[in-house]
Design a protein around this nucleic acid. Structure first.
Lengths: 340, 340
DNA sequence: TTGAAAGCGTTACCAC
DNA sequence: GTGGTAACGCTTTCAA
C-alpha cells in the first residue's frame, strides 16, 4: 500500500503538498495539483484512515447505540440512518445493546472522538452522567425517541399518540378497553410506553369512561407474553371489547391469541397497536403510525450537520407527526357486549 | 483525555512499560505493573484506538458487507453476527449495499487492514478480482451464502433445498406446481434462487411430472411483484394448485394475492417458501428453513478465529442443514383440480 | 505556493 | 525488566 511519502516522492513534492491536494486546499497551484493527482492515480494511493483519524482527531465513523437492533422498530430506524448516510463519508458502526452492562460498556467508552465522530442513541434514555460526559468530550449526540438536556433529539408525542389510539377506540363505541404497556422491569428504562399509557388515561378520563384496572396489563415485547396476556384478558367474565397495545409486536400477539381461542378480530375484539412496523401493513393491523424510517433519517442528517459545520447547530427537539392508520383490526363495539 | 505518556510520567516509568502492562506482557515485574495500573486508574486512562490501530496495523473492527441489510433475511443473519460478536473486542461496521456502485465502492476500498480487520460478505458473489485483491492484502474474509476459491464460507445446499420444497408439494399430490424465482435482472447476481430452481426442476423430473413453463416466473422481492405474479397465475385457465416461491417474502405476497382474490390458502393454492424468516412462523407459512441466525453466528466465529490465531485457519465450506417446516399454507391437492 | 518538521498516541525493537 | 526511540501515515503549523 502506497503512503503519502511515496506519492510525494513520485510527484517530486513534499508530503504536505500531497495532503493539501487530498484535502482540496485552495492553496496549491494547478500544475502541482495535476502532478500530484497523477502520482496518486499511478500508485493507486488511498490515504490510511487510521492515520488521518489520529492526526485529525476524528475517525469518519458514525456510531448508533441501539437496543435490540434487529427488532422491527430499530430496523426501520436504521434503514433511515443508512439512507441518510448514503454517500456521506462515514462508516456506520452499530453498538447493539441488550443489557444494562452493554449500555454502560458503550456509554463508558464512547466519550471520545477516536471511537465515533458522532453518536445516535435510539429509544433509551441515556444516563445523564454518561451523556454529559460524552457531550463534554465534544462528541455530537442526537437522541431518537428520547430527550435530554443539551442535545438535539427526534421524537414523537407519545402521550398524544396514546390519546389518539384510545380516541379511535372510543369513537367506535368501545368502553371496556384493555391496555397493554411495556415491561415495568425493563432494565433500560424505555419510557414511551408509559407516556402512551398516560395518553390512554387522559383520553378515557376526557371521555368520562372509567378504566377497569384489571384490564391494564404490562409485558415485554416477546410475542408469547402478549399472547398470554390477551388470553387471560379474554377469559375474564367481562372481557374487553378492544385492546390498545403500546407496540405493534404486542398487538400481533393479541391477534394471535384471539385466533387461537377461535374468536375473531375485530368482531370479538378490536386491536390497535403502535409503531406501524412493516409487518403491520401486511397483517392489516390498525395502529398509530410513527415515522420510524424518517426518525433515523432525520437524526442522521442532524448529526452529519453537526459534524460538517464547525459551529454547533442549535439544540432542538424535532417532533415527528403521529397518525392513526385504520386498517382491519378495529371495528365498532359489538351490540351485545356487556354493560357499558 | 490522558495519554500513555502521562500515565508513564505519573507511574515513573517509560511509555513502553505502560504499553506492556496494557497488553498483558509477562515481562513486567509485579510491582511496576501495580504502579502502572494505579496510574491508569487514577487518570482514567484508556488507550486511543486510532493510535493503536495505526501502530499495530489493525483497527479492531469487523466489517459486514451486506445487500439490503434491513430486509428480513440479512437482519436474521446480523442477529447471529451480533450474538457472536458479543464480548469480542471488535466493533461491528455495516457496509450496506444497494447497488453495484455501492458494492464496488466498498470492495474497492476494503482491501486493507486499516478499514476493517476482517470482512463478512453476505448473500452476493463478490467479483473474483475484488475478492482476491482483498485476500491478497491480508484481510480475512468469510462468505455467507456464497462460495469462492480460497475463502471459507457458510452455505446451504440450495439445489437440495429446491428439491425439498418441490418434493413436499409432490407428496401432497400436486402436479401443476408454479415456481417463482429471483429477479433475473438483479444487478448483484444473487445465485441462490437459481440453484433452488435447479432443485425444483430435478425433483419434478425425478417424479416424472412435466413442468408447465408458463407457471415458471421470476420477480424481485418486492411484495407487490409477487402479488402481481400470483394474481396472473391464478387467473390462468388452468391455474396451478401449488406454488414454490424461492423466498418467504415472495410467498407472503402470493398469499396476499390469493386472499385478495377471495380464494383460500391452502384450499385453493398451496404455498411453500424458502428461508423461514420470523414473519413466516407468525403467518403459518410452510417453508424450507435455512439457519439464518446460525449462518451469521458461525461466519463471525470463523472470522474471529482467523483474527485471533496467527495461523490462517484452513479454508473450508461449512454447509448448514435445510429443513422443511410444514405449517398451514400447504395441503393436499384439491380432488377436482383439473387433469393431472 | 511550497517544503520541512513537529505532532497525533501507540507499539515494538534495541540496548542496558 | 525496563527506558529510549524509531516507526505507523497523516495533518498542520512555520518559514521561506
Amino acid at each position: 500500500m502506497a503512503t503519502i511519502a511515496e506519492v510525494a516522492a513520485r510527484a517530486g513534492v513534499g508530503a504536505g503538498t500531497v495532503s493539501r491536494v487530498l484535502n482540496h486546499s485552495p492553496k496549491v497551484s494547478e500544475t502541482t495539483r495535476a502532478r500530484v493527482q497523477a502520482a496518486i492515480a499511478e500508485l493507486g494511493y488511498r490515504p490510511n484512515p487510521l492515520a488521518q483519524g489520529l492526526s485529525r482527531g476524528r475517525c469518519r465513523t458514525l456510531g448508533v447505540v441501539v437496543p435490540y437492533f434487529t427488532t422491527p422498530s430499530p430496523v426501520e430506524r436504521l434503514r433511515g440512518v443508512a439512507a441518510a448516510l448514503d454517500g456521506a463519508q462515514h462508516d456506520l458502526v452499530i453498538f447493539n445493546v441488550e443489557s444494562v452492562a452493554h449500555r454502560d460498556d458503550f456509554l463508558g467508552t464512547l466519550d471520545r472522538r477516536d471511537r465515533a465522530d458522532g453518536l445516535l442513541m435510539m429509544s433509551f434514555p441515556p444516563p445523564p452522567t454518561d451523556l454529559s460526559r460524552i457531550v463534554a468530550a465534544g462528541v455530537p449526540v442526537v437522541l431518537v425517541d428520547a430527550v435530554a438536556e443539551g442535545v438535539s433529539s427526534v421524537v414523537v408525542d407519545d402521550v398524544a399518540g396514546g390519546r389518539l389510539a384510545t380516541e379511535h377506540l372510543l369513537e367506535l363505541g368501545h368502553e371496556r378497553i384493555a391496555f397493554i404497556g411495556g415491561d415495568p422491569d425493563e432494565p433500560l428504562g424505555f419510557t414511551s410506553a408509559d407516556d402512551r399509557e398516560l395518553g390512554f388515561r387522559q383520553a378515557m378520563a376526557d371521555a368520562g369512561v372509567e378504566i377497569d384496572e384489571s384490564l391494564v396489563r404490562y409485558g415485554t415485547h416477546a410475542r408469547e407474553v402478549a399472547v398470554a396476556i390477551a388470553k387471560d384478558l379474554l377469559r375474564q367474565d367481562a372481557p374487553p371489547t378492544a385492546v390498545f397495545a403500546t407496540a405493534d409486536v404486542q398487538a400481533l400477539g393479541v391477534i394471535e391469541a384471539v385466533r387461537s381461542l377461535g374468536r375473531h378480530v375485530p368482531a370479538d375484539l378490536s386491536v390497535i397497536g403502535f409503531d406501524d412496523i412493516e409487518l403491520s401493513a401486511y397483517v392489516g393491523l390498525t395502529t398509530v403510525r410513527q415515522p420510524l424510517f424518517e426518525s433515523g433519517q432525520l437524526a442522521t442528517r442532524l448529526l452529519l450537520e453537526a459534524l460538517a459545520g464547525d459551529t454547533t447547530p442549535a439544540v432542538h427537539v424535532h417532533e415527528l407527526p403521529l397518525e392513526v392508520v385504520v386498517r382491519t383490526t378495529t371495528g365498532p363495539r359489538p351490540p351485545g357486549a356487556g354493560p357499558t
